[in-house]
Design a protein around this nucleic acid. Sequence first.
DNA 1: GCTATCGTTCCGTCTATCAGAACATTATCA
DNA 2: TGATAATGTTCTGATAGACGGAACGATAGC
Lengths: 269, 269
Amino acid sequence: MPQIGGAPSGDGLQAVAMAIRILEYLAEQRGGIGVTALARALGTTKSRVHRHLRTLVETGYIVQSPESEKYRVGSRLVTLGRTVAENFDLSALAREEMRALRDTLGQSVVISRVEVTGAVVLATLPGREAIEIAVKPGSILPPHCTAQGKLGLAHAEPAVRERVLLSRLDMRTPHTITSPTVLREELARILERGWAVAPSESLLGVNALAAPIFEGGGGMVGAIAILGSIQFIEAEPSALQIRHLRQAAARISAQLGDVGRDGVDSLPR
Amino acid sequence: MPQIGGAPSGDGLQAVAMAIRILEYLAEQRGGIGVTALARALGTTKSRVHRHLRTLVETGYIVQSPESEKYRVGSRLVTLGRTVAENFDLSALAREEMRALRDTLGQSVVISRVEVTGAVVLATLPGREAIEIAVKPGSILPPHCTAQGKLGLAHAEPAVRERVLLSRLDMRTPHTITSPTVLREELARILERGWAVAPSESLLGVNALAAPIFEGGGGMVGAIAILGSIQFIEAEPSALQIRHLRQAAARISAQLGDVGRDGVDSLPR
DNA sequence: GCTATCGTTCCGTCTATCAGAACATTATCA
DNA sequence: TGATAATGTTCTGATAGACGGAACGATAGC
């Protein structure tokens, strides 16, 4: 099997790698920055940085303030990111797994994308029960009181996570976790287990069991979950439910290039 | 004065330019694409594309599906775009101009960022009148019935513009433009003039006068506007109001690297 | 089982990229 | 006001790194 590894010098095309380093550095700069300072920060020469900057200005990804002569990233990167997000069709990839999961476990299946503000519901599949418990596509699941939201929070960057933890965590039900400390412990447990539940935390009597979807490189991009009454999805879900859900998540992740480091048994279908 | 132009071969660093072309192409691909097809689409060799893809996979911006062997852009570009958007502080840049404008014209001043869904209010400065007309920061101004929204729509890409034009344009007041045809004509007029008004189109008795803010490269990134009663901002605003607003917009644009092609007289303060 | 096509790797050529120094301008300070 | 030290930009020769084309192994289609 052909591998991607075995980089002889650094990582691949050095000009491209440098351009990316420049863009990433500039992206989290608030005001602009000059050539000299940028070269120093990246540990390279002025002329190299300047050549790269000129190229990136020509392509429109960086703008230079005429008077201060400083460089900033332009809005074009934002546009590009949005284009990617729009065309990233997680629900299409997951459709088959969703059906299989619904047929096996009988509960409603929900697929969602992870955002900073919470989890966005992309698609749902109604369960086989007479009384339906469902969410509407497009709705946003709060980070602190839903299985998907907590899962995303657990995998978020520490800075983002803390910001959410210290923001207002409104109490939806008597079971909602509103203490940052308790929630922090819960997130650690979620990371360890690899799945999350939120029994009666958002709506009394309703629970969800969610597992993360990763893409190649290890970033979490979404979550797949089953949704139903606490009668069928208990606070401690059955081993069967957990295994099937995690296997479905792992198979979707594999389609996204994830290699699956954690121990989900018998991944291939 | 040193110029950025005079590119000898294509545009700058060719490896970087190619990497960007690859990313841009992949960004608007829904499913993945293979090396051969990509090379053909970009008019270059397989080996070149493959080398670039390997580099981009190593940096995490592209992921490769293990089984189908096809390449897709990863979510890292989305993250990068969001980082840029978060650190792009238009209101900080515009603060001084906003104050000057309020002091000169007396009306409330509103600065907003352009999004696909409309214009997002970033910051406001209350006017000098006894009765205050204002908008809250964070609120979203609809594309079809506000000066800022129409301005953004006029400068948007044709595909995006048409999608909005053909979507539901709800009637806020009897003066709201709900006909795509009429709105299309209005947008053409806005482009020609370089400013927009929306008298009583969103709320009876209220008007706004907005001018676009560009960044280097020509993309519109936001808008600055004065907001007030139709008594002070008429359907055909005074030459003084138009001149001062456009000059303020041009000065903010200049800070963002825009060279100001259109004829805003006496730009320097 | 043959063929077409895929992704990947190899290799010699050459050019595009690099580091360093020189240049032009502007800010800083005496 | 003049000298100095920053800045951003451009020039240069040297080289290693990116290039195109061909070959390889694997897979899918007929």
